[in-house]
Design a protein around this nucleic acid. Structure first.
Lengths: 201, 201
DNA sequence: CCACGTCTGGCACTCAGTGCCATCTATGTC
DNA sequence: GACATAGATGGCACTGAGTGCCAGACGTGG
């Protein structure tokens, strides 16, 4: 995935600082809570200025949700790569599954993020906002597939695609909430499949 | 719905001020855009102090989304009143339909709100956040229904209920987006039904 | 008329986020 | 190796949302 062009010193320091800020912030968030931690504190602890914090993260929420945009792109390209004859739901499921392989974060950290996410209103809202961006990526791809598979369907393919994408993301959200609530005991895929089954029954 | 206890002067003025702020704000939002309008401007135009604005609306977004919490309660009580033998999707659909009768806003205003909603990220996120509150209201009711109808199903009734509720709200969201995009030309119910059909196919 | 509770404006404050500028330094070039 | 340049940084000032507090005005019930 990462081209092994020799990273310059600048790029390496930037990456290091980025990670340092993220680590520091997540530690503080876990200790004191998300709302209760100010950016000044994070910056001070990370040894940078307040102003520099915003050069690495646009918002406080982005520290927690930073990889979501990237993940959206992963899902989108995975969806685009699915065989054309695969039905919509199966294709979307497979595309979402591509995340499991791409995500490097270990489960404990992921659970920590999840707990923070489902425990804080603002964070939850921003999370949903990012998922909205996923929609814009995924809907056109899926719509094209549906159009190709069934050229003269009764329902507008774009609407159908939007519905399936939003439905799938909603299921993922529910599954995520349950996964967190059960401390990761039930595998996410299983929860997702159950949710989808419940919807389509 | 409203108990006809003689409203005191205080209650009447409060209601009037509330409405005045909302009207002023919506006008300014429409003219200059949501982000571009500050609370100071709204307060000044409405003839109240900045501080008083926050005594009527907790956040700027609440001016636009104010009635959503109330609407959630309407849907919840409608859902609770549906016959026990009605299948989940039908019951939820009927409950959502109760909104059509309860909402007094005329269609043009509703379209204006919709355009604002789907045109602004923050607003959109807050909207979804409010819908999350609907979930908490609706899921227990629907779960109880599912549990009663099918005492020993494979899937956890609570999860199934959550999936259906979230799925339905997702469909409503998609339908709303399309309704706005087509300037209300296609009836919302039709779009909702199409979306649900697309999901369950 | 009086006591109480509510509403109000105003002030000061916190915190997120942005624009601007001076300074420093890694990098590529002659 | 000197040099121009582009990127990174810290600091400062500013806006805008949202909150706490307080003193004064006013509707309400006794």
């Amino acid at each position: 995935m990462t081209g092994n062009a020799p990273e310059s010193l600048r790029e390496r320091t930037r990456r290091a600082v980025h990670q340092e800020i993220a680590r520091t912030a997540m530690r503080l968030f876990a200790e004191r809570g998300f709302e209760e931690t100010t950016i000044d504190e994070v910056a001070a602890q990370a040894g940078i200025s307040r102003r520099s914090f915003f050069r690495y993260f646009a918002t406080k929420e982005d520290v927690v949700l930073g990889e979501l945009v990237e993940r959206g792109r992963i899902v989108a390209s995975a969806l685009a790569g699915r065989p054309a004859d695969e039905p919509p739901w199966a294709a979307v499921r497979a595309a979402l599954l591509a995340l499991r392989d791409a995500v490097t974060t270990d489960e404990a950290d992921e659970l920590e993020i999840g707990r923070m996410l489902y425990g804080n209103q603002t964070l939850r809202a921003r999370h949903l906002e990012k998922q909205l961006a996923w929609q814009d990526l995924l809907v056109p791809i899926l719509a094209e597939r549906i159009r190709a598979a069934d050229p003269d369907a009764g329902v507008d393919p774009e609407l159908a695609a939007a519905a399936v994408v939003v439905g799938a993301l909603a299921c993922l959200d529910v599954a995520g909430a349950w996964w967190v609530r059960r401390d990761g005991a039930i595998p996410l895929e299983r929860l997702y499949d159950d949710a989808v089954a419940a919807i389509r029954r």
